[in-house]
Amino acid sequence: MAEQTLNIPQILAFLLIAYLTIRWLRKPSSSTPASAPQYRQTPDLMARVDDLSAMFPQHDRRTLAWAIQQNRGGPAAIAERILAGHTLERPPPTFLPNLTERAPTTTQPAAQKSAKPDLITRYNLKAKVDAAGEVPSEEGTKKWSQDKEERKKSLAKRREEMILAARRRLVQQDQGSPSA
């Protein structure tokens, strides 16, 4: 008799534990998609990001892509929000759209354009290029001077000499073979 009355709570407890265990076991597989959602990448996402990125280069492309994903209003609404001074929401770390295609090609030409000045301009050799012609100026001394200033001058002299000599060789080469 006493055994029977004890059995019912035991069965209830067993059922509860079994239910919770099954729930717990199934949880990881069923909840993974919810915690890391598959961001669908619409084909025109790239194009929209490009448009926005062109207007607002100060904003990260990933942030813009996230804004487009979140905001169904489209790029116009996002542009308006940026113009109104609102900050864009930071994308979660799991949001990794494939945005690599355009970015490098747009930065490459810009990097090439920022060319450094040529050596003649940089070392102020214009006058010497015009004046010297074919006459090689005297050799910079290779001797080690005890005087700091003299060493500095000698180094500068040899540097000029090296650049001018290279330029002369190139000019001579051009005159030698007009096909170049």
Binding site: A115, D118, L119, I120, T121, R167, L170, V171, D174
Partner: peptide
């Protein structure tokens, strides 16, 4: 690039 660097 070489030519440009020598101002040619």
């Amino acid at each position: 690039m070489v030519r440009k660097s020598l101002g040619l």
